[in-house]
Design a protein around this nucleic acid. Structure first.
Lengths: 151, 151
DNA sequence: GTGGCTGTTATAATTAAATTTACAGCAAAG
DNA sequence: CTTTGCTGTAAATTTAATTATAACAGCCAC
């Protein structure tokens, strides 16, 4: 399949909203920045909304974050758009008549779960605010602009 | 796309070889355990071989591990079969005319790299021996059988 | 030499994802 | 109260990474 870029796109959307709170932000405007189409943006936005990370009103092009950027973590966004999809995937099609096949996968599962937990812990330590701060560093803008635009 | 199960299958193959060193292990026999086809098994085995994790002789159905199971890590196997494929994927199709789009993805990349490094460190701490040990626990067999079969 | 295997390539089928189209319903403007 | 543009949502299509399959040259042991 294609690689999923939902997490990246969702962060993009959230950051875009945080940075441009003063403008009208239709799904079309956001889609133009991601270079995708509005329906896809709306699909992701609905997942973020259902996860309690942003809010919006039907027919009204003014989405807003539901919490301060410091309180939204990368893990929150990951869970919102990817659900419980793990990073590593077992092969669940092994031969059930082969004890080795089944039990090796069961053993692997324990280690995959451990890895997943570690990664999620790491993701929960990164906030949207951290990402936006780094974004401003990357784009060479002054730090005080961050404060103006995210309040 | 489909989810990649190459890592799981590669571990399966390595463990299978470690556990059944006394038998002839044609790609067909191994494929039967994973319930896939021999050519796919051979493709993965070649990657493991090129990474220096196992050895085999053309025309001879007796593959063997190139190192003791304690010295082969999950990261070694991951790198062998997935190369530098990351776990999280940036959206590289954002609008280049939109500064936000580009710089948000650049900021994200730094955090993704950090996460990747953490995960790889974790994977490098898990050995094939660990997985095989847990496999024997899962299949309810005595620990001493492990020693007989992996020496 | 024969049979069975590995190593290798090329092609098809599968599957998860993104894209696109479509439309019902809401909100604000006139 | 009608128009316009938007959101929310579902369905159908296209794209892309993967697995599956087929084919065959070359090696090994008998």
């Amino acid at each position: 399949m294609k690689y999923s870029t939902r997490l990246s796109d969702a962060v993009h959307i959230m950051a875009f909203i945080a940075i441009h709170q003063e403008y009208d932000l239709s799904s079309t405007v956001i889609a133009d920045s991601i270079q995708t189409n509005p329906a896809f943006v709306r699909q992701i936005m609905m997942k973020l909304k259902k996860a309690g990370l942003m809010s919006s009103v039907n027919g009204h092009a003014k989405p807003s974050l539901a919490k301060p950027t410091e309180e939204i973590t990368l893990l929150d966004i990951y869970k919102a758009v990817e659900g419980n999809k793990p990073l590593l995937h077992l092969d669940t099609h092994t031969n059930p008549d082969c004890g080795v096949g089944v039990n090796i996968q069961l053993a692997l599962q324990d280690y995959y779960n451990e890895i997943q937990k570690g990664t999620e812990k790491h993701m929960s330590s990164i906030s949207l605010q951290d990402i936006i701060k780094l974004y401003y560093q990357k784009s060479g803008q002054a730090e005080n602009i961050v404060k103006v635009q995210t309040n």
